[in-house]
Design a binder for these strands. Structure first.
Lengths: 204, 204
DNA sequence: GCTTTAAGCTATTCCCATTAGCCATTTGGA
DNA sequence: TCCAAATGGCTAATGGGAATAGCTTAAAGC
């Protein structure tokens, strides 16, 4: 019986691929083992059960999403960066629905949870995008959270569109990006101008 | 053996309660049966298996969320209505995390799917809120989708906050509501004014 | 080459979903 | 009131997947 040369990473990758192809709900130790040409109990040498596997897929997905967003925003600013981030997320969810599904509703258990680090790294490019808008520092956190909510919403919309295709989803996307971009410009313009609403294009 | 007097609704309700208390992942026919003081196979007289039960819980949740949003926006307009809707959703997700979890990633199978009707009814109050902003009709669909994404994002944030409580989540919520409100005012002001950015408070 | 470690295996247990088929209870019409 | 159909609950049994125990052999280091 030759060895398969597995490790935790290979098992996670196989599980992620399976989830993408068959749906996250179909993820099972048996199917992953079959895909790897190995018996089910062998997986337990690398992974601590189905729950652990799902968690690893989640960390993988968050890491990959963070990388995709980073790549898509590199060298761009403001609206361009915003659109890049949103489209990167959208594309990722479309290409890897199972991995994305693995991330919903999962929370880091503590500061030493690898997921916490992955999340932090994934959020960095979002902060970078916001930097370009020169917001009031006190608003940064709010803006990051909003952006995160928005992008999550983008993804959810991409998944659960299917029934009311009356209007093109693409144009809704760009509309939303415009909406956020203009709102952020306005918020930036507010800095140091009191609280009145104003939307002049700020310098830079 | 006296009868328990069950029906599909009672089973669904028990499943929803269980999901809220123990987590949607823990939902099982056995636990629902136990909670109802009945043997597992008896449930199959009312419900077509675990998948069907989950789906019914989803429909229930969508219906309840729609009602909560409707109640919270009744008699209010614009920012008030927006805040009402967002807080209603937030409260619902906090009080019924299991039911909410039952809704994620589920899509109606066709126009005759009860879920399709429930979704449609749930989205109506959102359209009503937007009506108050007097948007360009062509933008309505985009705005509804954005609002829906936003509210979904609100809920996700409420669930997955837990680790970076550096800044109060409540203030992020109100910040986001302000952001959307002001953006919608700006969009409304654009109607018939060409495409330049402007944020004057529109009449009414 | 020999020892140790670790990866894979078989066998087993347990739990859960689901189906089949039985029995009792309700209900509604004669 | 009584009988018959329909209905709701039950026990028993099947099948599948997760997980554990313990064995065996391949790889790695001396």
């Amino acid at each position: 019986m030759p060895r398969a040369g597995l490790d935790a990473g290979a098992v996670t990758e196989a599980g992620a691929a399976l989830a993408d192809e068959a749906g996250f709900a179909q993820l099972s130790m048996s199917l992953v083992a079959e895909r790897l040409g190995v018996r089910t109990p062998s997986l337990y040498k690398h992974v601590d059960g189905l729950g652990d596997l799902a968690r690893r897929i989640c960390v993988l997905a968050v890491t990959e999403m963070g990388a995709a967003v980073r790549d898509a925003t590199q060298g761009r600013a403001r609206r361009d960066a915003l659109e890049g981030a949103a489209q990167a997320l959208r594309g990722y969810v479309k290409d890897h629905p199972g991995r994305y599904a693995a991330t919903v509703g999962v929370r880091p258990t503590g500061p030493d949870d690898p997921l916490a680090a992955a999340l932090e790294r994934a959020l960095t490019p979002l902060s970078a995008v916001l930097l370009g808008y020169r917001l009031d520092p006190a608003e940064e956190t709010h803006a990051v959270r909003m952006l995160r909510s928005m992008l999550h919403g983008f993804a959810a919309l991409e998944i659960s569109d299917g029934f009311q295709m009356s209007t093109n989803v693409n144009s809704s996307f760009t509309w939303m990006i415009d909406f956020i971009d203009q709102g952020l410009r306005a918020a930036a313009a507010d800095v140091g101008h009191g609280r009145e609403v104003s939307s002049q294009i700020p310098p830079l």
